[in-house]
Lab assay of single mutants.
Amino acid sequence: TTYKLIANGKTLKGETTTEAVDAETAERVFKEYAKKNGVDGEWTYDDATKTFTVTE
């Protein structure tokens, strides 16, 4: 399944996707990606669109 991340960070803005077996796995991947890019904010997830959003 393809999951999408929308990053609304102070230093990183944009979108990326990952293939994962479930939302929990995708969330781990995206949180690691955000951490590597210095983004720390509020996370939301929309199951209907398989989209995570992080906003600083």
Rank of each mutant, 00 (worst) to 15 (best):
E24N: 09
V54Q: 01
Y45Q: 00
T55L: 07
K13T: 11
T51M: 04
K13L: 12
A7G: 05
F30D: 00
E32Q: 09
G41K: 01
K50T: 03
K13Y: 12
E56W: 11
G41E: 01
W43N: 00
A48P: 07
L5S: 01
K31M: 09
Y33I: 09
T18L: 14
D22K: 03
Y45V: 01
Y45H: 01
T17G: 04
K10E: 09
V29F: 15
E19G: 05
E42F: 14
T2H: 08
G41H: 02
G38E: 06
E56H: 07
A23G: 04
K50R: 12
K10C: 14
G14P: 08
T55S: 08
G9M: 12
N37Q: 11
A34R: 01
W43K: 00
E15C: 15
E42Q: 13
D40K: 13
Y33R: 03
V39T: 04
D22Q: 03
T2W: 13
I6T: 05
D40W: 14
T2D: 05
E56Y: 08
F52C: 00
G14W: 15
N8L: 14
G14Y: 15
A23P: 11
F52Y: 05
K36L: 13
A7L: 15
V54I: 10
K13D: 06
T1Y: 14
A26N: 00
T18P: 01
E27W: 14
D46I: 04
V39L: 15
T44I: 08
D47Q: 09
T16N: 05
V54R: 01
E27Q: 10
G38V: 03
A7W: 15
G38R: 06
K50W: 04
T1H: 14
A23I: 10
V54L: 11
G14H: 14
L5W: 04
T17V: 10
E24F: 10
T1D: 12
K50D: 02
L12N: 06
T55K: 07
T55M: 08
A34L: 10
E27R: 10
K36A: 14
T2K: 12
K50G: 04
T18V: 15
T25E: 14
K31R: 15
I6W: 05
V21M: 13
E27T: 04
K31S: 04
T11Y: 14
L5G: 01
Y45C: 00
K13R: 12
T2R: 12
L12V: 10
A20F: 05
T53V: 07
G9R: 04
T2Y: 10
G41V: 02
K31Y: 05
R28V: 08
K31T: 04
K35L: 12
L12P: 04
D47M: 08
V21I: 13
V29S: 07
A20S: 06
D40C: 12
K35E: 09
K35Y: 10
I6R: 06
E32P: 01
T17N: 05
T49P: 01
G14E: 10
A23Q: 12
K4G: 03
A7Q: 08
F30Y: 02
G41Q: 02
K36Q: 13
A26F: 01
D46Q: 04
T53D: 02
F52R: 00
V21D: 13
T16R: 09
T44P: 00
A48I: 10
E56V: 09
K31Q: 08
E19C: 14
K31I: 06
A23C: 13
G41A: 03
V29L: 11
T25A: 12
E42P: 04
Y33M: 07
E24L: 12
D47G: 08
Y33N: 03
A48W: 07
G38W: 04
N37H: 15
A34W: 08
T11W: 13
N8I: 15
A48Y: 10
E15P: 06
Y33F: 12
I6H: 05
D22S: 07
K13P: 09
E19S: 10
W43H: 00
T53L: 06
T16Y: 15
K10S: 12
E24S: 11
Y33T: 04
K10I: 14
G38D: 06
F30M: 03
E32V: 05
A7E: 04
E15D: 06
T11M: 11
T55P: 01
V29N: 06
A23R: 14
E27M: 14
T55D: 07
T17Q: 09
A26H: 00
E27V: 05
A48G: 09
K36F: 09
V39I: 15
V29P: 00
A20L: 02
R28L: 10
E24T: 11
E15S: 09
V39S: 03
T53G: 03
D47V: 09
T1V: 11
K13H: 11
T18F: 12
V29R: 09
K36G: 06
T16C: 15
K36R: 13
K10P: 13
K36C: 11
K36H: 10
